[in-house]
Simulated assay, not measured.
Amino acid sequence: MQSLGIGLIGTGFMGKAHAIAWANANRVLGGLPPVRLELLCDTPIEKAEAMAGQFGFARAIDDWRRLVDDPAVDVVSITTPNALHRPIAEAALAAGKHVWCEKPLGVTLADGEAMAAAAEASGRTTLVGYNYLRNPAFQHARRLIEEGRIGRLFHLRGFVDEDYQADGSLPWTWRSRRAEAGLGALGDIGVHLVSLLTGLGGPIVSVVAEAAAAYPTRPLPEGGEASVENEDIASALVRFEAGFHGTLVISRAAWGRKGSLGFEAHGTKGMIRFDQERLNELELYVAEGAKSEAGFRTILTSGEHPPYGAFCPAPGHSLGFNDLKVIEAGELLRTIAGGERARPDFAEALAIERVVYAMAESADRDGSRVAVSAMGG
Rank of each mutant, 00 (worst) to 15 (best):
F240L: 02
L196G: 09
R124G: 00
G224Q: 10
E231I: 06
L200K: 02
V107E: 01
E113L: 09
H317A: 14
Y357V: 01
A342C: 07
E120W: 07
T298S: 05
A117G: 11
G30V: 10
A254W: 05
R369G: 00
Y164V: 02
G262A: 02
A371R: 15
G339N: 10
G123L: 07
A287M: 14
D62T: 05
G168R: 13
T217F: 09
A121E: 06
N82V: 05
P171S: 06
A50H: 04
P87T: 14
F321M: 09
E38K: 09
A181Y: 04
A287G: 05
A310M: 01
M375I: 14
K269Y: 02
G30P: 08
A121P: 02
A94S: 14
A374S: 15
D111E: 13
R149N: 08
P33T: 12
D167H: 02
D111Q: 05
S251T: 07
P203C: 03
A110D: 15
E293C: 09
I150N: 12
R341Q: 15
V326H: 00
D111T: 11
D69T: 06
P33Q: 03
I189S: 01
R278D: 14
T79A: 14
S77H: 09
A310G: 10
G123I: 08
R177P: 13
P313H: 03
G246R: 03
G256V: 04
A181I: 00
G12T: 12
S318A: 14
A349P: 09
A236C: 06
V73Y: 03
V249I: 04
V160S: 00
V205H: 01
A329C: 15
R36S: 14
G289K: 11
D62M: 06
L350W: 11
H317N: 13
Q139R: 15
L300F: 10
D366I: 01
D232H: 13
V160T: 08
A314D: 15
G320K: 13
A358R: 07
D188R: 05
D161S: 07
L193P: 02
I78P: 05
R278L: 07
I145F: 00
I61G: 04
A25F: 08
F321H: 12
E162R: 15
S362P: 08
